[in-house]
Amino acid sequence: MDLAKHWRLRHARYRLEGQRNRLTGEVRFPPAPPHPGEAEEIWEPYVLSGRGRVYSFSIVRQPPEGFEDQPPYLVALVRLDEGPMVTAQLTDCDLDQAAIDMPVEMVTRRLRDLGPTGLIVYGYKFRPMVQR
């Protein structure tokens, strides 16, 4: 059931928590262990704003295992305001609405349902900005 794997990823998945370099201010996502020789405390947890723009996108019509009930759906490369690029589904977005450079914001949604005896896996997706 991979319970431990899902549990370890919860901060990154639920709230887009990456890391920030205390010395340079560089922000990275997903979080990673320090490089060899690098002090672990150089990278501190950092929650990204969730704002970004669509760098590119594709429509998935032949889904991988575990996503059979979802197509057609949108997968995008999103350039986050802080710099990192992430791959995620677009949601609340019509297929003909998706566009390169479209402003998007992160929302926490159901990624997969592992069935009646399994977990519901939650994580980040992106959607067109809601008007403020």
Binding site: D69, T91, R109, R110, Y122
Partner: peptide, 13 residues
Amino acid sequence: PGPDEDTITMSIE
């Protein structure tokens, strides 16, 4: 609710 929404996701937003 959309297919990826439930009480938890709506509560979070």
